[in-house]
Amino acid sequence: MRSRIIGSLIVKDNIVVQSFGFKNYLPVGDVKICCENLNNWEVDEIIITSIDRSKYNLGPDLELIDEVSKSGISTPITYAGGIRNLNDAEKVISKGADRVCINNLIMTNISSIKDIALSIGSQSLLASINIIKSNNNFFWFNYINKNLLPIESIPLDLLHYVSEIIITDVNNEGSDDKFDLKVVDITKKIFKKKKVIFFGGISTKKKTSLIKEKIINSSYAIGNFFSHKELANQYFK
């Protein structure tokens, strides 16, 4: 089975940034042009994550989704960031995103997830879970208030309503291929056979192969590395 390679664009203050461990950011450029480039490379999907929308309760960046979807790219777009309720999720889809990804909502409004799935279809809904390692233990990380929650507190009802889960290795996000394979083990234990997209410090084919040995139907989201080289997607073929 061929693994899907997904381009991940982290958006902060209206621009794509390189993100390092959810703490440090370097500027990359225009969202539309980054999408156009990933589209030309024929990646399998593009995930746009606006990281400052939930933090400031701004709702999803509808203007951005509109602009990207009107730019004529054919690659499916998943949007994450600022989704507070069913209404926000529906607006994201109506503006042209193919799928919606929720993260903060899992912690703040779990009941709305079922409503969203019923409205837009669970095939169009993803959940994002951030995993962080601290004192040799792994936790579910709340990126807004920086709280560490027990892995066991992740609501597993979620699995019924979303089609895929994005698992991010927070410690190694933005690093040069340092994604921790233990995160895959934890994922397998919690989410069993659910389809998973791994993100955070994946920049070689070797790393994706190692993950695939553990979870065969996993996909990979590549962030910073895709802005470092021409045709960087070829490194995963």
């Binding site: 980054c34 470092h228 080289k229």
Partner: peptide
């Protein structure tokens, strides 16, 4: 503007 670390050894891209 420090778009990349020197250690990332960024190369020429059409996108940039």
């Amino acid at each position: 503007v420090g778009m990349f670390s020197y250690t990332q050894e960024v190369e020429m891209t059409r996108r940039y």
